[in-house]
Structures are given as C-alpha cells and as structure tokens.
Nucleic acid binder design. Structure first.
Length: 249
DNA sequence: GTTATTTGACCGGT
DNA sequence: ACCGGTCAAATAAC
C-alpha cells in the first residue's frame, strides 16, 4: 500500500516530469528564452525539492506542516522571518501577505501593500533583500487573484544582480542546492538579464506547489491594465509567455 | 538592539 | 482627481 507521503512525492515527481517535458518541447522548437523557460525550470526544481522533502522526512507530517517549521527552527536569527517566509512559500500560499512569498530562490523584503481598485485583494510589493547591499533592483508584486482555490499572481520586475543564492541557510537549501548544482548558472539572474522584462506566475495554494500559468490573456486583461499598457502584447521579442502548462491541471 | 513588516503619506502619471 | 508605486515612521518580532 502506498502511503500518503509516497503518493504526494510521486505526484510532485510527475509534475516535475511533465514540466521537464514541456521544457524539452520548447528547446526542441527553438523557443528558448529566459522568460519562457524560467517558470518551467523553477517548477521542476520546486517539484523535485518537494518530492525530496517527503522522502527526507518520512516520519513527519506532510511537508506543509512540520517540515517547514523544522527548517525554520534551524534558521539563523538574523533573517529568520524572511527565511521562514521563503520556506513557507513552498508549501502554503493560503496566508496573508506576510507569508505568501513563493520560493523563487531569492529573499524578498516587503516594502508596500496597496488596495487595487480593480481587485478585491491587496497587492503586495517586494524588493530584493539585498537591494541596498548589492544594489539589486529586482522587485516583485504578489496579488491574490482568486479566492477558491487561492491563486496568486506574482510579477517579477528588474534584474537580480545580487548573489542571493549564496546566502541561503545550509539547512534549508540542502534540498535545493542539489538541483542548483546541475544548473550551469543561477536561474533568476539568467531570467532577469533583460531589463524591464516581466514575468507573471500564478500560484495555486490548493496544490501546495507552484502552479505556473503565464497566459498572456490572464496577464494582460483583468487586474493589471497598467502593465498591459507598459508592454506590447504577445508575441513580443522581450515579453513571452507560456501557454497553459497543462501538466499542472 | 537589530531587522522586518505594517500602513498612512507622498509622488508621478494619466 | 484618481490610481498605482514607493517612502518612511511606527510597530512587531526575535
């Protein structure tokens, strides 16, 4: 009989596999761009990390509870809040603004929150924790766009020039580094080498795993007319969105 | 004491 | 005037 944890681990692996297949198709078709491949890469990494977390802690309740607390308890005091935020971001987006920051490999500091007229939910503004230290101008916005299931839209702006990957706590990053090591270079810096490039990622908390849907229609239409006016509609050389990633359905 | 978050104020664009 | 993005003082957490 397959345990619940094994089942979840398998499910995560299958998601990662599906995403890898999508990436393969993109590569085969020559549709290589940091924007188009980035969400897939992140999802693959997150899926495998999630699967590993299940396997590493077979005696613990599923990932979304004790494992994250475990990680948090080992984190240094200096940025415990922030690292906890990153840790929880992997597992549960159904929180308030304080914890709904998905693990994208970087640490973010919240600097604002606004009620958006076209949306019932507030939009949260984050900038890279190392914005001052390393003159990193990367920012992101996170906004809840659906209630049930909770779906968050994350919009990344600017480029990372910081070395955020190097500062992760060993305890927490142990499962991530394994994957980072097979990547020739850090992921987000690759993504953000194009100024003003925007990528949106929607995350479904019900899945407890990053659910990426960079659909141009979703992105441009409903709650963000400003960005629709800022960037040309698809297709564009600078802004490219993945069509629906069916592997996550 | 240090750092992160919250939230009202402020500013620029439309 | 309205709206979205950012600033910065106050507050909370550790």
């Amino acid at each position: 009989m397959v345990s619940n944890i094994d089942h979840k681990a398998m499910e995560a692996l299958l998601r990662g596999q599906g995403c890898a297949n999508n990436l393969k198709i993109l590569l085969e078709n020559g549709e290589i761009s940091s924007v188009s491949t980035e969400p897939l890469i992140h999802t693959i990494l997150d899926s495998f990390s999630l699967a590993l977390s299940f396997m590493d802690s077979p005696n613990h309740p599923p990932y979304h509870e004790s494992s994250s607390h475990n990680m948090a308890s080992h984190m240094s005091r200096r940025s415990s809040k922030q690292k906890l935020c990153v840790a929880e971001g992997l597992v549960n987006y159904n929180h308030d603004s304080r914890t709904m920051c998905p693990n994208d490999g970087f640490t973010w500091r919240k600097y604002g929150q606004k009620t958006i007229k076209a949306s019932a939910h507030k939009r949260c503004y984050y900038r890279c924790t190392y914005a001052k230290d390393q003159n990193c101008n990367a920012t992101k916005r996170v906004q809840k766009i659906k209630d049930n299931p909770p779906v968050y839209r994350t919009t990344y702006l600017g480029k990372h020039v910081c070395k955020a990957f190097a500062v992760h706590d060993d305890t927490y990053s142990s499962t991530m580094i394994r994957f980072d090591q097979v990547v020739p270079e850090p992921i987000m810096p690759q993504l953000t080498t194009i100024d003003h490039q925007v990528i949106t990622v929607e995350e479904n908390s019900a899945e407890h795993i990053m659910n990426q849907e960079c659909d141009i229609n979703d992105y441009l239409v409903d709650d963000d007319p400003f960005w629709a006016s800022q960037f040309p509609p698809f297709p564009s050389s600078d802004t490219m969105f993945l069509e629906n990633i069916s592997a996550f359905d």
